[in-house]
Nucleic acid binder design. Sequence first.
RNA 1: GGCGCCGUACCCAAGUGGCUAAGGGAGCAGUCUGCAAAACUGCGAUGCGGCGGUUCGAACCCGCCCGGCGCCUCCA
Length: 486
Amino acid sequence: MLHLHNTLTGNKDRFEPLVPGRVRMYVCGVTVYDYCHIGHARSALVFDVLRRYLEYSGFVVEFAKNFTDVDDKIIKRAHEQGVGCDHITDKYIQAYYEDMEKLGVGRATVEPRATEHIVDIVGLVEKLLKKGMAYRVDGDVYFQVDRYPGYGRLSKRNLDDLQAGARVDVDQRKRQPMDFALWKSSKPGEPSWDSPWGPGRPGWHIECSAMAMRHLGETFDIHGGGMDLIFPHHENEIAQSCGATGKEFARYWVHNGFVQINQEKMSKSLDNFFTIREIFSASEWPESITGEMLRYFLLTTHYRSPLDFSDQSVRESKGALNGFYDLFERLNEPAPNRGTADGSMRVVMTRTREAFAEAMDDDLNTPNAVAVLQKLRGESNKAIESGLSSKMRHAVRQEFRALGAVLGLLQPDSWQFKPQFQSVSPDERGEKTTPLSEADIAGKIAARLEAKKAKNYSLADQLRAELASHGITIEDRPDGTSRWKR
RNA sequence: GGCGCCGUACCCAAGUGGCUAAGGGAGCAGUCUGCAAAACUGCGAUGCGGCGGUUCGAACCCGCCCGGCGCCUCCA
């Protein structure tokens, strides 16, 4: 039974959807005015895994993830570049899809955009005005925070605390400093839509309420996003949604922790962020492998803990994944019809499945889930040593595939990949390496096998050293052939 | 000022009251191999930031202290 840490209650709550067998979840996506960084990747990945695990557990999942495509930063960027807002948002939505595909993050069931829901937004604002929870000032509409008695229940703050700590100049037209804009009148040159209050555009928080209600209903199961959204964004969503409907909005609030650089939050102002595409283009590994390395790295820390990003730790994920793919190679090798370890392996696989679910049920403990897979790897290698039939080898590979799929890992048949030769970076000893074609590699390997056959080991070792200087490792098989990897 | 989080081996990272403190990476030794690689076997924290306290029993609960961080403003 899945338990999720619920920010609303502060506890790990047993997860039970409102409608049995069906989960409705909404996740705050990105504001599309720039490329995504590794922090966005983490958030997207966490909810991608949550969705995968819910589906693995047998739920039908309706998953909505929005794009915020009207916003001050977008307008600013468009003005700077002398282009329309559409140009900016189209470009970065496209980039988002490209980045997420490299990370293996699947598409949501619906991916609504704020600008496509103006009618819903206007309707919601009207409802709040009618109920006396919002007020008009010139062409703007504000939500009046003290009209919603539960304000602060998500972020565990009260209005007095918030006002004492306010660091921003308060708009004097507001009745309360914490009141927030539902609708903003547009200045010339800004995107605008007609409304009962004149031409304008939606405030930031209202879009998520409107879109979630449109696609998932007034009350739904899970609402997610980064921890920095707890206040004010999600607090405001709750106030305006519950204020409008009189019903609970989302039942479980799930928030992921930050990615940090040297123990500090990644942010634009500190200029310490890495975009997803930067990481991929700087990687010496092929895209599919870089994607899996990153995914493994991000999932080996619990989603609510801070995670320190470094090249070093991502590289270390490569070492950990190598072990799996080396095992898969062995599982593919010819094997007898019966193996002495077949029976015990069956038991191991059953236990593995249970332990995996137990880890994931515990608030999506992916580091533990990965540890379970690592244990299965060890057990599988031992079983191969003592004798595992080809049928069981196939079953073991399927088990890795099935559990790996929940994490989005271990799907390729092999890591015998085509390396990228274009730009090989200097290796760690500082030696310059030169590009090596695949034909060169094959040639050297063939030459080395010849030398070995002739027992000319010094030549064979020299050829192996040459390949090693290009980061290529040779592995001699018992059948007299050699395979290689980077 | 308010709210909150983190500190576990060389590195990453689970564990949050009771079996020998998971797992991975790196390292060392051994088996195998022409030598390697891979695999297997073994080694590796008498201790979980520090000091007190509660308890039959604490990394886990409480208090204080030290160190680091986040939110309270746009932010995944």
